[in-house]
Design a binder for these strands. Structure first.
Lengths: 340, 340
DNA sequence: TCGGTTTACGAAATCGGTTTCGTTTCAGCT
DNA sequence: AGCTGAAACGAAACCGATTTCGTAAACCGA
């Protein structure tokens, strides 16, 4: 037979389609061990697979999770995607992905495209500029924000414990003898993550009575680099410690320092966020605040599943889950760049 | 109204559901400019969005493209994903992604999960071990292989023009004065890509009358590195040139060379495949065979779309498209590591 | 003016599952 | 035996679009 339908299976097994459906979804309406076995045998023998579209239509459930990522070039994002994929698969769900490439318009378009496709829930690593649209989406279906929140609040958010990680890096630099610290950021990146890290940084400095500041590199290589040189010169002889607020800033920092020579100027210590592969290699190893991407992904999917279950179970508007900010601890990889 | 259905729109516009459907899919059966406008107005006003599941069921088309990636940590893969996402979106399709993590079992599972979900076609960057399953899948729906072919053949394959890229790297090294060349590979990687590059490498050497060989690093850091040291020592004083067969091998090479100092031993030249971000930084810039990931992605989606159209259009088994191997030219980024 | 095509559109079947609402059967209890 | 309640299952409605088929009106050339 070209295409088996549930009624064919039912006929073959001598039961009704309803019973086969119950079997497929192992529903509470129990069935005899014998009929169960008979249906199983027929399905096994014929290699029958239920048509997802039909199932989706009637049950208005797709087992699809939409994922919108801001920047897949960022290893954080790709690690996240792998984690999400695994966690979703473990729950029998597939991922529909869209990449916004840090373009708000594309992000908005992805939002509607995924919702129109009927995803059960949405994971959004927003690039910003769509707070209203995201809030609206969250009103229509479960949404969990990944790494970057939106102003509104009211939506679940899963991030690393940035304050702790910042403290860890400051620790490492201080222990390595740095007397003044700079947190390097980029002008173009005004994300909540960057802001949170910057705040935590200044808080941490004042808590410890350390000198330092947040240095924003303007975009466009040359200017940013000269700005950096300046910062380094300013502190020359004062045991400077640098923290790159993310992996991209760290790369730019590396390029800038390259002209000063392959190893760090005496007394200069470096640390960075995001555990990129090259962190093991550059400067003989850079001390890194590593995020636990797998754990983050797992929590995101877990949380989303909870919400999806609530939506499909609850009748009224009661029993809503209160929005949470879930923080996943990361850890510090101490490497050569902060050895004494 | 809670959920608008097409019949509601039809009633509101004073036409039949069939006409609204024609409007939604702008079908050949033309309609009056006036009714078109009336329908458009109602849809606009009500914010109606057709239910994808219903549409999928009836038309047995989902506008979904399944993507299975072997290793998302590889920047090649993430760049590819971004390209695929963009190309698919341009055709009104969404991506369903699965990450096999180079695990054959997961790949097989992803294969059936995506097919069951009803994707219109499949892009597979296989990790190997599922040739039969993939060939079977290709018999049931359009499949395009990405970067890695399978033995069978008979399935479309899109790759870079590896032979040309190998020749380009050999060129660069020869021009930089290298007298003996090594292509560094890893034992665990027995992919067709690696084999093709290795073949092209030896062909190219003999064509030019250059000395050299393929060196396979055994896996597990220590042993691989000692093997590399050996290779380097063997050729000491003979102007050695090294080519890393891919970005991961290059990273390991870098670690191994780190103990020899931050800059290259005199006379040692290096080049690598895959334009990773750190290639700009390490050794002051590494000459790289860069693949045109965007072009590859575009061709993959284009080819898949062709096949999908053929499937949904053609009645009989006639008019099949012959399988093709499409090669996309890349280019060589000359950097400091191969300057004279 | 009249047969023959198009064109614009509607009625109803259809896609293939799930879900609701019975109905039958049978064990357990009085 | 008669009653009750639960367990096992079937009949038929249903999800919301698309698609086929048919028809009335408009158009067109002779």
């Amino acid at each position: 037979m070209a295409h088996m339908r549930i009624k064919d299976i039912a006929a073959e097994a001598g039961v009704s389609p309803a019973t086969v459906s119950r079997y497929l979804n192992n529903r509470p309406g129990q069935m005899t061990e014998e009929t169960r076995a008979r249906i199983a045998e027929v399905i096994e023998r014929t290699g029958y697979r239920p048509r997802a579209a039909a199932r989706n239509l009637r049950s208005s459930r797709t087992n699809l999770i939409g994922v919108i990522l801001a920047d897949i070039a960022n290893p954080f994002s790709s690690a996240m995607l792998e984690g999400l994929s695994a966690s979703a698969a473990a729950r029998g769900c597939s991922l529909m992905t869209a990449i916004s490439g840090n373009d708000s318009a594309k992000e908005a378009e992805s939002l509607t495209r995924l919702i129109d496709a009927g995803v059960d829930g949405l994971v959004v690593n927003t690039c910003g500029g769509n707070d209203a649209a995201i809030a609206a989406a969250a009103g229509r279906l479960p949404v969990v924000l990944l790494d970057r929140g939106i102003e509104d609040g009211g939506i679940d958010l899963v991030t690393s414990n940035n304050r702790e990680l910042v403290a860890g890096l400051v620790d490492a630099l201080a222990a390595a003898g740095s007397e003044r610290l700079c947190l390097l950021t980029e002008a173009s990146d005004d994300s909540p993550v960057r802001r949170e890290r910057a705040e935590a940084f200044t808080d941490e400095l004042s808590r410890r009575g350390l000198a330092g500041e947040v240095v924003t590199l303007t975009d466009g290589g040359a200017e940013g680099i000269s700005r950096l040189d300046e910062a380094i010169r300013d502190y020359a002889g004062k045991k400077l410690g640098l923290i790159a607020v993310n992996g991209l800033v760290f790369l730019r920092l590396t390029e800038a320092l390259a002209q000063l020579g392959p190893s760090l100027p005496a007394g200069l210590k470096i640390a960075t966020f995001d555990d990129y592969p090259w962190n093991h290699v550059l400067f003989g190893g850079v001390t890194t605040a590593a995020q636990d991407t797998l754990a983050i992904a797992e929590r995101v999917v877990e949380r989303l599943s909870e919400r999806i279950d609530v939506v499909t179970t609850t009748v009224g508007e009661a029993a809503r889950l209160a929005p949470k900010h879930i923080e996943i601890p990361g850890h510090i990889e101490s490497r050569a760049s902060t050895s004494r």
